[in-house]
């Protein structure tokens, strides 16, 4: 029961957290800012509209929004939700998780190329190029966790992890930072991408979906914010201790997730977006941190000092 309630909460929550990011930015800039619930109104408005479709496009363009949502929801089903195991759990779900998200990326990139627009080709090219750095780094993270816990599914990894030795706090911190970088990349936020930019030439994710409108656009936006929530759940799962009671646990959980999104807002307020050629360096930081954590694991598993 609690599983279904949390799942539904997670599925309806994402726009709220986008509201938090926007609010944080507004407050930092000394503005009052829009309501935290504004993204919900925008979403509803998009859902009510009709669509304009490019005549160059094919079926691929039409199915991609649904593929996106389906993949992200599926990915959420395999990661452990707060205070319950994941909905689906089997050996090797850590691999399927990434590959399903890869599938949706494949389709998004094709949908962008389907329009034959030079802008969208540009965004598609950048998106996959950055993925070639993010994916291996993410596999270092889950591989290290699998090594540390001897498990190959998210649920058993996180269960084992919350009971593990004290040195793991160091590893957890390193992984949290790397996953936060992944959050910025996959959520296309500053310093990798700027969701507020109005110049097609400098966009990454936004430019790939230029030709979408109405419900299609709503689907895609929902999928991408849900993906951000999914990554924050992974982050919070690393941090939260298993021994908490239900009510303080839920409070801590919501607090930590909100804190992650406030951090995204703060990063956006504090630093400028990187030059396109400097973005890979920033993402490589994720690889470096994960590798360091892996080295620490190998060191301690073999006796430490």
């Amino acid at each position: 029961m609690i599983k279904i309630i949390t799942l539904i909460t997670v599925l309806i929550s994402p726009f709220f957290f986008i509201g938090i990011i926007n609010k944080t930015k507004a407050v930092w800039a000394g503005r009052k800012g829009a309501s935290i619930f504004q993204p919900y109104y925008d979403f509803y408005k998009l859902l009510k509209k009709g669509v304009v479709i490019s005549r160059t496009t094919s079926l691929i363009f039409r199915i991609t929004p649904s593929v996106n949502i389906a993949s992200v929801i599926f990915a959420i089903l395999v990661i452990p939700l707060p205070f319950s195991n994941s909905v689906i759990s089997f050996q090797g779900d850590i691999v399927l998780f990434s590959y399903i998200l890869g599938f949706s990326k494949f389709m998004t990139v094709l949908a962008a190329l389907d329009t034959g627009s030079s802008f969208e080709g540009m965004g598609a090219s950048r998106e996959v190029t950055f993925s070639t750095i993010v994916e291996p780094a993410f596999f270092i993270i889950i591989g290290s966790l699998a090594l540390l816990t001897n498990q190959v599914s998210f649920t058993s990894i996180f269960t084992a992890l919350s009971l593990s030795a004290s040195y793991t706090i160091l590893i957890k911190i390193l992984f949290v930072i790397s996953l936060f970088i992944m959050l910025l990349v996959e959520g296309s936020r500053v310093p990798v991408d700027d969701p507020n930019t109005h110049l097609e030439l400098t966009m990454i994710h936004e430019v790939m979906i230029l030709d979408y409108s109405g419900p299609d656009l709503a689907f895609i936006l929902y999928a991408s914010v849900l993906k951000m929530v999914m990554i924050t759940i992974l982050i919070v799962n690393l941090l939260i201790p298993a021994s908490l009671a239900l009510v303080p646990g839920i409070l801590l959980f919501v607090l930590l997730i909100s804190l992650s999104f406030i951090s995204v807002g703060l990063v956006e307020s504090l630093i400028a977006r990187s030059r396109m050629s400097h973005v890979p360096q920033f993402i490589f930081l994720m690889t470096a941190l994960s590798l360091t954590a892996f080295a620490v694991i190998i060191f301690f598993l073999n006796g430490g000092f």
Partner: peptide, 15 residues
């Protein structure tokens, strides 16, 4: 959602 709504076909967005 798109039933009974306007689905118009136009050229690709090109600024």
């Amino acid at each position: 959602l798109l039933r009974k709504r306007e689905v118009s076909v136009f050229k690709t967005w090109d600024c």
